[in-house]
Amino acid sequence: MIAENTQTQMRKGILEYCILSIISRGEIYASDIIGELKKAQLLVVEGTLYPLLTRLKNNGLLSYTWKESSSGPPRKYYQITDEGRAVLSRLDVTWKELVFAVETSLQGRND
């Protein structure tokens, strides 16, 4: 149980970081984000993404615009805000620290 919990917590933080990174590359549609995340094997089901996107948007890290689609309903295209960029650069630093921390710890274990 604790293992699962830890796994979930780890994934959760990383998932948000990845979403921000993906969006930072340019305007993108939700299902494309899903495609990327699936490719990265971070996401299993699509439904999980929407709450995350909404939360990031409500925190001012993302914004979106409606765009007509050739097949089907209009789509929401997400883009990163300046604030989002600031957060992302901070997260980049944190990630590097984390990688360092984890690698160091793992090395210590393997010795």
């Binding site: 919990n5 979930t8 917590q9 959760k12 299993v44 089901v45 439904g47 709450p51």
Partner: peptide
């Protein structure tokens, strides 16, 4: 249930 899993 999948949502719950990912939200922990």
């Amino acid at each position: 249930s999948d949502f719950e899993e990912s939200e922990g």
